[in-house]
């Protein structure tokens, strides 16, 4: 089983570097696929959520592994406990009516990945997303 562990700079200014590193890691594991862009975006949205809600000085690690026909991506951070998966689905009509500029990230993540799982263990937020490898 192939596994790649990336240490992520917890800074919005470094997002471009982060995107490149994750893109390269996914390609290394599964080759070129037409869904890599959106999966990378989902991971970016998770990282941005951690940076926005997280504790200063917290570390973020992204572990990518291929398991049979699945790509598992585990995002581990040392911020205070924060479960983004419990956020309720947005009412899009209302969202646009109020001209809201934030709050669609989690909705986007849930629409892109095949499974999402959260746990808090030993002072760490552990979020695992699964993508079925196809295409």
């Amino acid at each position: 089983m192939m596994k790649i562990n990336l240490k992520i700079e917890p800074s919005l200014e470094e997002l471009d570097k982060t995107r490149n590193a994750i893109n390269n890691a996914i390609i290394q594991l599964v080759g070129e696929k037409n869904w890599i862009y959106e999966l990378n975006l989902a991971i970016e949205e998770i990282i941005v959520n951690i940076i926005d809600h997280g504790t200063k000085g917290a570390t973020i690690n992204v572990i990518l592994e291929k398991e049979n026909n699945k790509l598992l991506i585990t995002i581990i951070d040392t911020s205070t406990m924060f479960d983004m998966t419990t956020k309720p689905e947005p009412d899009l009509e209302q969202h646009f009516k109020e001209y809201k500029k934030r709050g669609l990230g989690i909705f986007l993540i849930k629409n892109i990945v095949d499974n999402i799982n959260y746990k808090y263990e030993k002072g760490k937020n552990i979020l695992t997303i699964t993508k079925i490898i196809e295409g």
Binding site: E45, F96, Y99, K101, R102, L104, G105, L108
Partner: peptide
């Protein structure tokens, strides 16, 4: 590349 923050930024402009 446009993330959710980028699309969201269009709303105050709209």
């Amino acid at each position: 590349h446009i993330a959710s923050a980028g699309f969201g930024a269009l709303m105050p402009i709209k």
